[in-house]
């Protein structure tokens, strides 16, 4: 059982190495201690803030904004994407628009959204939703458009009408690509929420916490908050992967 044990431990090698290098840099004094605390101090600070609950408020605020933005984006993006994808002409006519705004960094639109929504929570949610909706829409449309032609023909030959084909083939066929869109969409929403919390006046949220800590040179808090933000993004991604594996069991097969 030696080789399998080694294999199982393999994924931990990277993180361990990361902390070792971090610790080495601090111990050897390669970086000013004011700018980089040791990993132990940082993790201890992180644990303390979590237990005391001060950071939990910020995690929850960021999560809530991300979740609302994502829910709005999914509610609009999935149906619209599937509708556009099932009509090649409809999709082609808006393709450039989608690709253009998908390629535009959404953070470039923050000032514009500020004009519309002001310095509100709705603003942060709106811009994150806008960023996520395009990713989701694009993937859902793409999933429908790339449905296997054979499967559509098979359904037609079995007497399926246009609606049957849409529901039984196109929609199902698009699901695995839709999940890719949802997964990327929520990551995108989180990125934009964090940026918005930093630069659009905010009282809560991890983005606000990171920049606040930086301003007063509370580096332990800053690093701890960055770690938590990373963990949040990672867990959201994993959650979607697990859901995908469960619901889209045929994906990649």
């Amino acid at each position: 059982m030696e080789p399998t044990l080694t294999r199982r431990l393999l994924p931990f090698l990277g993180p361990v190495l990361f902390f070792v290098v971090w610790y080495g840099v601090v111990v050897l004094g390669l970086v000013n201690k004011v700018l980089l605390p040791s990993p132990f101090e940082t993790v201890a600070f992180l644990a303390n803030s979590l237990v005391k609950g001060v950071m939990v408020i910020d995690i929850w605020a960021t999560f809530e904004r991300t979740a609302i933005a994502f829910a709005c984006a999914a509610a609009v993006g999935v149906p619209l994407g599937i509708a556009l994808g099932s009509s090649e002409t409809a999709y082609r006519s808006v393709e450039f628009l989608i690709d253009f705004f998908r390629s535009t960094p959404s953070s470039a639109l923050i000032p514009l959204f500020l004009l519309i929504f002001g310095i509100t929570d709705a603003n942060k949610i709106a811009i994150a939703a806008f960023a996520a909706v395009l990713v989701i829409l694009f993937n859902s449309a793409y999933g429908v458009m790339h449905a296997r032609k054979t499967r559509i023909l098979a359904a037609r030959v079995m007497g399926a009408n246009a609606w049957d084909i849409f529901r039984d083939v196109l929609l199902m066929e698009s699901l695995s690509q839709t999940f890719v869109g949802l997964r990327n969409g929520i990551s995108m929403a989180l990125v934009i929420v964090i940026v918005a919390e930093m630069f659009i006046g905010s009282e809560t949220g991890l983005g606000h916490r990171i920049i606040d800590a930086q301003q007063v040179l509370n580096v332990k808090d800053m690093y701890a908050s960055i770690l938590v933000t990373g963990a949040l993004g990672y867990l959201l991604n994993v959650a979607f992967l697990v859901m995908e594996k469960r619901f889209i069991h045929w994906s990649g097969k």
Binding site: T150, R151, L153, A154, V169, H249, W250, K253
Partner: peptide, 24 residues
């Protein structure tokens, strides 16, 4: 009835084999 060369692409992978047969 029609049988395709590419059975993998002709069947519906989201439903069980028996439901594929029942589909038509």
């Amino acid at each position: 009835g029609y049988v395709f060369q590419q059975y993998r692409e002709a069947l519906f992978p989201w439903i069980r084999a028996i439901d594929n047969i029942a589909y038509p």
